[in-house]
Simulated assay, not measured.
Amino acid sequence: MSDTKRIALLIDCDNVSHNSIEGVLEELAKYGMVNVRHAHGDWKSPGLSGWIERLHANAIRPMQQFAYTKGKNATDSAMIIDAMDLLYSNNVDAFALMTSDSDFTPLVLRILENGLPVYGFGEKKTPKPFVDACSPFIYTENLEETDEKKPTKKVADIGTKAALRKDTSLVRLLRTAVEQTSGDDDWANLSRVGAYVSNNSSFSAINYGYKRLSDLIKASDLFEIQMRHNDSAMYIKDARK
């Protein structure tokens, strides 16, 4: 039996842009195989034309949901039912929800109760309750690439040393993670730090313009760094100690 994690990606096309779908799939490939790819929306709506162009190219199955009542979002209910069907099928090991709608927060909590992780992707307008419920949560703007395939200036700005050190929530999270996972000598293995952070927050280094936690750690200059085991493992220590 394969150990590859099976991931179900459910997309709320009414509330998230199509421009980052390739980046989302590339990010999910780090965690496992996205064997279920469902895009929910009213495909008669001209507002989803951008999504239509991306479906076949990325092997995404469109899930039609008609707007039965004007002003009501029927997509939410259909996507929740889809998620619950998949949850009880026992054919997936994790969920990825691509939406900017906080109405899906109870769904995330329900999936977590079953012991399955939920990876969240949404625009920066996404309400905090949904962001905090997912682990990790990645802003889709950070997965979009410019023509030169470089981070946008906005992403680069938030990842500077000064900006990282001014982010008190980030600094507290990282220092707490190191403190909780360090040995008697105050040094902590970065892989354990990363696991602690993932289990206790919606943090993702991508939201700060970095592909890896190790790159963010180096840029912040908050920790002393040692490479051990023939440079295969990074250990860090609070620079204040």
Rank of each mutant, 00 (worst) to 15 (best):
D12H: 08
C13L: 00
C13R: 01
D14N: 00
N15H: 05
V16H: 03
E22M: 07
L25G: 10
L25H: 02
E26Q: 12
L28N: 05
Y31S: 13
Y31E: 15
Y31V: 02
G32Q: 09
M33R: 14
M33K: 13
V34E: 09
R37G: 05
A39Y: 08
H40L: 13
H40I: 04
H40S: 05
G41R: 11
D42M: 09
L48S: 03
G50W: 06
I52Q: 15
N58V: 04
Q64K: 00
F66V: 13
G71A: 06
G71L: 10
G71Y: 05
T75Q: 00
A78W: 00
A78H: 12
D82L: 03
D82F: 12
M84R: 02
D85W: 07
L86W: 02
N90S: 06
N91D: 15
N91G: 13
N91H: 14
A94N: 03
A94E: 00
A94G: 06
T99R: 03
D103P: 04
F104E: 03
L107T: 11
I111T: 01
N114Y: 14
Y119S: 04
G120A: 01
E123I: 07
T126N: 08
P127A: 02
F130Q: 09
D132A: 15
D132Y: 10
A133Q: 07
F137M: 07
F137T: 07
Y139G: 14
T140W: 11
E141V: 12
N142I: 04
N142P: 07
L143D: 04
E145T: 14
T146I: 08
T146G: 07
D147Q: 12
E148G: 00
T152W: 07
K153M: 13
K153I: 10
A156I: 10
I158A: 08
T160F: 05
K161C: 12
A162Q: 13
A162S: 13
L164E: 04
S169F: 06
S169I: 07
V171F: 08
R172T: 14
R172V: 08
R175S: 10
V178R: 08
S182G: 09
S182H: 09
G183E: 09
D184G: 15
W187I: 04
L190I: 01
S191F: 08
R192F: 08
A195K: 13
N199D: 14
S201M: 01
S202E: 05
F203Q: 00
A205S: 15
K211I: 08
K211H: 02
S214N: 10
S214C: 02
K218F: 06
D221E: 15
E224Y: 11
E224C: 06
E224T: 05
R228I: 10
R228M: 11
H229T: 10
S232D: 04
S232A: 13
Y235L: 01
K237F: 03
K237R: 15
D238G: 04
A239Y: 05
K241A: 09
